Simulated scan of single mutants.
Amino acid sequence: MADSNTGNTGVAENNSSKCTQGCEHYRRKCKLVSPCCENNYICRFCHNASETHQLIRSKLSKVECMMCQTQQPLAQTCSNKECGVTLGNYFCKICKLYDDEDKEQFHCDGCGLCRVGGRDNYFHCDTCELCLPQIIKDSHKCIEKVSKANCPVCLEDIHTSRIVSHVPPCGHLIHRPCFNDLIKAGFYACPTCSQSMIKMKELWKSLDEEIEDTPMPSEYADLYCNVLCRDCHET
Rank of each mutant, 00 (worst) to 15 (best):
D99R: 15
I136L: 04
Q105Y: 12
F123V: 10
N150R: 14
I136Q: 04
S79P: 01
C128V: 08
C170W: 15
P168T: 14
G117A: 09
E104F: 13
Y122A: 07
I183D: 02
S79D: 04
Q105T: 04
H175C: 02
Q134W: 08
N150I: 13
Q134R: 13
L74N: 04
D126N: 08
E82I: 01
C151K: 07
Q134S: 11
D109E: 14
P73S: 05
N80P: 11
K184A: 15
D138I: 02
S147K: 06
D126H: 09
N180Y: 06
G110H: 06
Q134H: 08
Q72W: 09
T77G: 01
C131D: 05
H166G: 09
K93Y: 05
V164M: 12
A185S: 15
H124M: 00
H175M: 06
D126W: 00
Q76T: 01
P152W: 01
H107R: 05
C170R: 15
R115Y: 09
D100V: 00
S165F: 10
P177D: 02
K145A: 13
E156C: 15
Q71W: 14
P133S: 08
K93R: 10
T127D: 07
V116A: 10
C142I: 11
R176N: 12
Q71G: 13
Q134P: 01
R176E: 15
K96Q: 03
T77K: 11
A149H: 15
S165T: 08
V167Q: 12
T127E: 08
L97D: 09
V167Y: 14
I174C: 03
C170V: 11
T160F: 04
P177V: 05
L173A: 07
H159C: 10
C83K: 03
F123R: 03
T127S: 07
K184P: 10
Q71D: 15
E144T: 14
K141C: 06
F91N: 07
F179H: 08
D99C: 11
L182N: 06
N121T: 02
Q69N: 13
L182I: 05
C114D: 03
C111Q: 09
D138W: 09
R115G: 06
H172F: 08
G88D: 00
V167T: 11
R119Y: 12
L155I: 07
C92R: 09
F179Q: 03
C131G: 03
Y90R: 06
D181R: 07
E104S: 13
P73I: 00
Q69R: 12
P73E: 01
I158V: 14
H107E: 04
C108V: 05
Q76I: 03
N180I: 11
H159Q: 14
V116N: 09
I135M: 06
H166A: 08
E129L: 10
G171N: 09
K96L: 06
L97Q: 08
Y90T: 07
D181K: 04
E144D: 08
A149N: 15
L87T: 00
P169L: 03
D100H: 00
S139F: 03
Q134C: 07
I135N: 13
H159E: 04
C78H: 00
I158M: 14
C170H: 13
D102C: 05
K81S: 13
C68T: 06
D99E: 14
T70Q: 13
C92G: 03
P133T: 10
F91M: 03
A75S: 12
C125S: 02
C170S: 09
A149L: 11
R115P: 00
C178Q: 02
D157S: 14
L132I: 10
G118C: 01
S139W: 01
